[in-house]
């Protein structure tokens, strides 16, 4: 089943199992069922609790905040992740603050879903991956959808905890089939799960055991899907073996799986689709360089998109956004590099 459908079933199951769950967003009601059809059928099944809203992202986030303060479990859809700018105040000054500033007398477990990312020709304001601007907001979890994480488990975790969450869903994942590791494999790669206590699992993928890998690649979302292709291709065609780590949660980061992998491979490449600089990758690089200074054999490579607007033209867009070629180049460079100290 494709990811969009899996997510739809997940939301349906959440609504069925928990009367506190409310879904809000623009154009989410039937028959339209959401810009990406993730909510199709839900407003018919749960007319009170699945509500289409005016084009008012701030109100969507703010009303969700009130619902959450009153004991409900709102799940808000922001139609394009680009519009997360319009909910920034609600997230930073309200949703993420309430529990701490009220000394644990209230909780505000809002889940904001944001279809994000480019490679679809939607141009400068409908293609961005803006999650980096939310990383490091105190008390906010930022989680990325991927094909190796079952959304049922991810949403079960959201509903079991009281933290607010930003859940970014790369649009190009919607038509893809989930590939959640099963029996130690995902596709042709070995697959394991690793997690620090209480954290969503990071999925570790490689053609050969970690001990035989020369680098670690850390990637999330759609970029993790591209990275998996690169890892597989380099293994099969050139016997360059690297391990791909796919975290679900970007912030706060679960460092334990990263440390365990890089501690063995000694090299790290991070991959993200957001604009380069002041990013997830640079934070990872800073942290890993400090924690694993002795184990690193070369500097951390950070792969990100060009820091400019995302053009509409296919050719121009592909020169700006990270694709397989940039990932492959960075992995090759990392695998070949050793700084002698």
């Amino acid at each position: 089943m494709i990811f969009a459908k899996e997510l739809n079933e997940t939301l349906r199951a959440c609504l069925s199992a928990d009367p506190r769950v409310v879904v809000l967003g623009e154009d989410i009601a039937d028959p339209y069922g959401g810009a990406f059809k993730v909510t199709r059928g839900l407003s018919t099944a749960f007319p009170d609790r699945v509500r289409t809203t005016p084009i008012s992202e701030g109100a969507i986030a703010g009303i969700s905040a009130g619902l959450a303060l009153a004991g409900y479990r709102p799940i808000a859809e922001i139609m394009f992740g680009d519009f997360l700018t319009l909910v920034f105040d609600q997230v930073v000054n309200h949703i993420a603050k309430y529990q701490a500033m009220y000394a644990d007398q209230a909780t505000c477990p809002v889940v904001v879903r944001a279809p994000s990312g480019g490679h679809r020709g939607y141009g400068p304001t409908h293609s961005q991956s803006l999650e980096k601007h939310f990383l490091g907001v105190p008390h906010l979890r930022v989680v990325a959808a991927s094909l190796v994480h079952d959304p049922r488990a991810v949403f079960a975790d959201f509903l079991a905890q009281d933290s607010p969450v930003l859940y970014v869903e790369h649009k190009l994942l919607y038509p893809q089939h989930l590939d959640v590791p099963d029996g130690g494999r995902s596709g042709d790669l070995l697959a394991t799960r690793d997690a620090g206590p209480g954290m969503l699992p990071t999925v570790c993928l490689s053609a050969v055991p970690r001990e035989d890998c020369v680098a670690t690649v850390l990637a999330y979302g759609y970029q993790a899907m591209l990275a998996a292709r690169v890892v597989e291709r380099l293994a099969v065609e050139e016997e360059i073996f690297v391990e791909l780590l796919v975290p679900a949660q970007l912030a706060p980061m679960d460092w334990a799986p990263v440390e365990r992998s890089v501690g063995v491979t000694g090299r790290l490449v991070t991959v993200e689709e957001g604009a380069g600089g002041w990013s997830w990758g640079t934070e990872v690089a800073a942290t890993v360089s400090r924690r694993l200074f002795r184990e690193l054999r070369s500097p951390v490579e950070v792969v990100a998109s060009e820091p400019t607007v995302i053009p509409s033209s296919k050719a121009r867009e592909s020169r700006v956004l990270v694709g397989e070629s940039q990932i492959e180049a960075a992995v090759r460079a990392a695998a070949a590099s050793t700084v002698v100290r």
Binding site: V22, G58, A59, A61, G62, I63, S64, A65, G66, L67, A68, L69, A70, G71, Y72, P74, Q90, H94
Partner: peptide, 9 residues
């Protein structure tokens, strides 16, 4: 909007 959300609850 938070007050409106509490009203919706």
């Amino acid at each position: 909007p938070a007050a409106a959300g509490i009203a919706l609850a």
